[in-house]
């Protein structure tokens, strides 16, 4: 097998050159000190300590470099968020659902779960599936959210009732009620989406209100172009 070289090592001109004697011909440190009177165990201990030290410090140096590389590769910026006005509390009745589009374009389903006008009476559901992050669709006829990726099903309160996310819930945005008005804390930034490119022409038209929300992206007054529409009134999207 190949552990043994099949041919003798090839002499290169370098190893033969007289002014550069080959390394292996030099008597090593070990051989030179072999005859000395030092205690061999002490010397072994010393060399073990020395080698360990070298290995540790090399490890620490390269480890530091690797640490910096990891910091470089994993950016830590937090998302910009803001409290935005959704609707007057009275506008959302028990059992109904209001669809709110955040400046980032994120679809949020706001629903009332109790009678009195306090933050605890409302839920604002994210449309991002807690399983693997796809966008759930509201199926009005079945009063459920459905996730097309792995057949996740959620009830109108966002609780997973079937499929892999069973037992998990759609996450909820923080809610505040002030003077009878409802606010949610939502992300402001979003990935750029296509605008009027040729590819757009091949697809279904973007519903108008979403377009308006897109235009409002990053605008100084996010209140502009924000809409709250009753869930029942959805058009366009559902036929997609």
């Amino acid at each position: 097998m190949a552990s043994e070289p099949k041919t003798p090592p090839i002499e290169t001109p370098i190893s033969q050159s007289p002014d550069r004697p080959a390394q292996r011909d030099e008597p090593s440190q070990e051989v030179l000190s072999a005859g000395s009177t030092e205690d061999p165990t002490r010397r072994d201990l010393l060399s073990v300590a020395l080698n360990t030290g070298v290995v540790l410090s090399l490890g620490a140096s390269y480890g530091t470099l690797a640490g910096h590389a990891v910091d470089y590769l994993v950016p830590t910026h937090s998302e910009a968020k803001a409290w935005l006005y959704v609707a007057p509390c009275r506008g959302i009745t028990l059992g109904s659902q209001v669809k709110y589009t955040a400046p980032s374009g994120a679809a949020i389903a706001v629903a009332r779960v109790a009678a009195e006008d306090s933050a605890a009476s409302f839920i604002a559901l994210s449309s991002t599936c807690p399983h693997m992050g796809c966008q759930v669709l509201w199926e009005g006829s079945k009063s459920r959210f459905f996730c097309p990726c792995h057949n996740g099903v959620f009830n109108e309160r966002g609780e997973g009732t079937d499929g892999p996310p069973k037992g998990q819930s759609l996450s909820r945005y923080p809610i505040r009620v002030e003077n009878g008005l409802l606010f949610v804390e939502v992300p402001l930034t979003a990935l750029p989406r296509e605008r009027g490119h040729s590819a757009q022409a091949c697809r279904q038209p973007v519903p108008l209100r979403r377009k308006a929300a897109q235009e409002a992206q990053g605008a100084a007054q996010p209140a502009e172009g924000l809409h709250a529409t009753p869930a029942g009134g959805r058009s366009g999207d559902e036929s997609a």
Binding site: C134, V136, P148, C149, R193, E194, H197, A199, A240
Partner: peptide, 15 residues
């Protein structure tokens, strides 16, 4: 070929 461009807000119904 090319499918529709990515839309981070809508997952296609069949994927």
């Amino acid at each position: 070929s090319m499918g529709p461009m990515a839309d981070p807000l809508t997952t296609p119904e069949v994927i």
